[in-house]
Simulated assay, not measured.
Amino acid sequence: MLRWALIFLLISLAAAFFGFGGITVFAVHLAQVLFYIFLAGFAVMLAAGLLFG
């Protein structure tokens, strides 16, 4: 999941460099959503590991 967030971040940076505004906004938002999903999953797994491990 984090890999996909980084890939979309790189796509957005490349699109911003070449001047494609719409693709950049879409890729940045998608990267942010994927990052927050990854972060939430990490927090849940960390809490589960501390409680049950």
Rank of each mutant, 00 (worst) to 15 (best):
V33E: 07
W4C: 02
L13F: 05
T24M: 15
A14Y: 07
G53A: 08
A16E: 14
L10E: 14
I37M: 10
G41S: 13
I23N: 07
R3P: 03
F52W: 10
I37R: 09
A43H: 00
I37S: 04
G53M: 02
L6N: 10
A5Q: 00
F18E: 12
L34R: 03
A47V: 13
W4D: 14
A5H: 01
I23A: 15
G53I: 02
L46D: 02
M45G: 03
L39E: 13
L10N: 07
A27L: 05
Y36M: 12
L30G: 06
A5W: 00
F52K: 13
F8D: 13
A40R: 05
R3D: 14
L6C: 01
G49I: 02
T24R: 09
L13D: 14
G19Q: 10
L10M: 10
A47Q: 02
G53R: 05
G22Q: 08
A31I: 04
L2C: 02
A31D: 06
L46E: 05
L2S: 11
L9I: 00
F42A: 15
F17I: 13
L50I: 05
L13W: 03
V44K: 10
L46Q: 02
F52L: 13
L51S: 07
G19S: 06
V33I: 08
A43L: 15
L10Q: 11
G21H: 05
A27V: 02
V33L: 10
A15P: 08
W4Y: 06
M1N: 10
L51I: 13
L9K: 13
G21M: 04
F42H: 11
Y36I: 11
F38Q: 07
S12F: 01
T24Q: 14
A31N: 05
F35T: 09
A15G: 05
I37G: 00
G19D: 12
F8A: 02
I37H: 02
A40M: 08
G21E: 14
L51V: 09
S12L: 03
L13I: 09
V25T: 15
L2A: 08
M1E: 12
I23Y: 05
F17N: 09
